[in-house]
Design a protein around this nucleic acid. Structure first.
Length: 553
RNA sequence: UGACCCAUGGUGUAAUGGUAACACUACUGAUUUUGGUUCAGUCAUUUAAGGUUCGAAUCCUUAUGGGUCAACCA
């Protein structure tokens, strides 16, 4: 897809490692926690991890980081697998941190035996107090010097369920004065009498992230464990545990997560939007989730292309959503079937058209020579877009106006002869004449016009519902604003047009196909459609030079 | 007030001591039976100040700015 641009910093590291013979092949993993749906930010990580092993010898595992049973659910596991597949990637092994709970338990025992871990009876409040601050050292827990035997006994009993939640933890014995807060005797295991989505009620103690992630990497012999920047301070602990446990030396590398403007990419915040019904669900087409983007009409290719274009680096960033839109337009322009749909109808009668009706042919896609054509019924009574007519047009307006010529797409050139008004002065109808020799594809009129309009025959039009979307938030970075991020939701992010007029070929619309409603934008059928009821989502609009022009004036 | 990470056009990424490049956006213009597409063009002395060097976006120092770290979350 994308050939030879320069290497990102991870590719440089990997090429170095491969060249030096440090590894014969590489192993990466994509490690989501199944506590929410994947979003566009995850797509970067997915494309990175899977992309690396497409480019270099090796493979990528899908590993669920399911160490916190109270927030994790099978529903999320299923959605994550579906999304990764839909994006076009295949994992070598499907693994779960919970697959390794027995190994992890053994690792904990090993640390205890090496006198590098201890059971602490302190409350979380006490532990926080003893932790110190980034500028002040912490103090040792009074339970820090228990004997190996006592620690073993207590930890075993923790596992056996003899103690209530929160009463004890297993901590690494490192250094309470360490400059890195994470090295101040981090918690390794905590007691949670909770049902786990995979291990059921087998365990009542669960490992913390730091005691599961790196160890799982080591078990799978992951060579390059890639995560986001906020884990940089964890790397020291990651390395310490691997060293003390004497397990496979996986290495952690960090890159900057991708932020996109006018949205949020935090599973916590997205969950709030879902739970508080600000959106219809995780797959609401306004959501930056993979499932939302899919329903919105984004293609896997466009998302991969987007991730490819924004690249990988270590600096904070805010990517313009306009680039995502560019990527999807780029793809849809190549594949979308052209169709005509009138959103806001104005009736147009061709007074000199006496043939009754005829079938015209329109190309499915001008970008595709093999795209074929579809039939479009034409008659004397048509609908055009209300804002494609102006009684007193400004300069450079080359749509329809009294006395002005315009082409009807794939049909004839017409001229506006008369404006008909209703009782309240509202324009109700346009009377036009057409030029019979100007038929599309067989034009012998010699007339050239500036404007081309889409239209639909009144008698043949079929109804459809259209859902238009705008950005979910009014501000670029809702998280950066004062107050709650939800105060910045865009109240006009969804606009429903319950009954537009579509050309009849759209009767055959299906979920897989992408459509360009000519001069309107790209659309995709929504799953809410039923037989006899078409519902379309707007994926993204066309670039609109005229709108820019009018805005300037 | 500590430690760590980062700093290149409006945005995102290149340039690995030797002419600041590519893409998006924006703006010009050409083409066009979608005001779409396509094509051509325009838009930066690299946060600042010193230093090393024949030569610095790149190396060093300091400053400034931004981010991260005190969850029994990941």
């Amino acid at each position: 897809m994308s050939e030879e641009h320069s290497l990102n910093f991870l590719e440089e590291i990997i090429e170095e490692d491969l060249k030096s013979g440090k590894y014969p092949h590489i192993v990466t993993r994509f490690p989501p926690e199944p506590n929410g749906y994947l979003h566009i930010g995850h797509a970067s990580s997915i494309c990175l991890n899977f992309g690396l092993t497409q480019k270099y010898p090796g493979f990528t595992n899908l590993r669920f980081d399911d160490t916190n049973p109270v927030t994790e659910e099978t529903e999320y596991v299923d959605s994550i697998k579906e999304d990764v597949k839909w994006l076009g990637f295949e994992w070598k092994n499907e693994r779960y941190a919970s697959d390794y709970f027995d190994d992890l338990y053994g690792f904990a025992l090993k640390l205890i035996d090496k006198n590098l871990a201890y059971v602490d009876d302190s409350s979380s409040g006490d532990m926080a107090a003893m932790k110190g601050t980034p500028t002040e050292p912490g103090t040792n827990s009074p339970f820090r010097d228990r004997s190996v035997e006592e620690n073993r006994d207590l930890f075993t009993r923790m596992k056996n369920g003899e103690f209530p939640d929160g009463s004890r933890t297993l901590r690494a014995k490192i250094d309470m004065a360490h400059i890195n807060m994470l090295m101040r005797d981090p918690i390794l295991y905590r007691i949670k009498h909770a049902h786990h989505h995979r291990t059921g009620d087998k365990w009542c103690i669960y490992p913390m992230y730091d005691f599961a992630h790196g160890q799982s990497d080591a078990i799978e012999e992951v060579t390059h464990s890639i995560c986001t920047l906020e884990f940089v301070p964890h790397r020291e602990l990651y390395d310490w545990l691997i060293e003390k446990l004497e397990i496979y030396p996986s290495h952690q590398y960090e890159f900057a997560r991708r932020n996109i403007n006018y949205t949020v990419t935090s599973k916590r915040k997205l969950l709030q939007l879902v739970n508080e019904k600000h959106v219809s669900g995780w797959d609401d087409p306004r959501m930056p989730t993979i499932s939302g983007l899919r329903r919105r009409g984004y293609t896997p290719w466009s998302i991969r292309e987007f991730c490819d274009r924004i690249g990988v680096a270590k600096r904070e960033n805010m990517v313009d959503v306009g680039l995502l839109e560019f990527c999807v337009r780029e793809h849809l322009n190549r594949v979308a079937l052209r169709r005509m749909v009138v959103f806001d109808p104005l009736k147009l009668v061709i007074t000199n058209y006496t043939k009754g009706e005829e079938i015209l042919l329109g190309e499915n896609n001008p970008e595709d020579d093999n795209g074929g054509e579809r039939e479009i019924p034409f008659s004397a009574e048509l609908y055009i877009e209300r804002d494609d007519f102006m009684e007193n047009p400004p300069k450079k307006y080359f749509r329809l106006a009294p006395g002005q010529l315009v082409r009807l797409k794939s049909a004839y050139i017409i001229k506006c002869e008369e404006v008909v008004r209703g009782a309240d002065g509202e324009i109700t109808e346009l009377k036009c004449t057409y030029i019979p020799e100007s038929k599309s594809g067989a034009d012998t009129s010699g007339i050239s016009v500036k404007g081309t309009l889409h239209w639909v025959s009144v008698k043949h039009a079929i109804p459809a519902e259209i859902r238009l979307y705008d950005r979910l938030f009014r501000v670029e970075d809702p998280t950066d604003e004062a107050g709650d991020f939800k105060e910045y939701l865009n109240p006009a992010s969804l606009q429903v047009l319950p009954a537009v007029y579509a050309e009849p070929s759209l009767q055959e619309a299906n979920l897989e196909e992408r459509y360009q409603f000519i001069r309107k934008g790209y659309f995709v059928l929504d799953k809410d459609s039923a037989s006899g009821k078409l519902v379309f989502n707007k994926t993204v609009g066309l670039k609109d030079a005229w709108a820019r022009e009018t805005k300037k004036a």
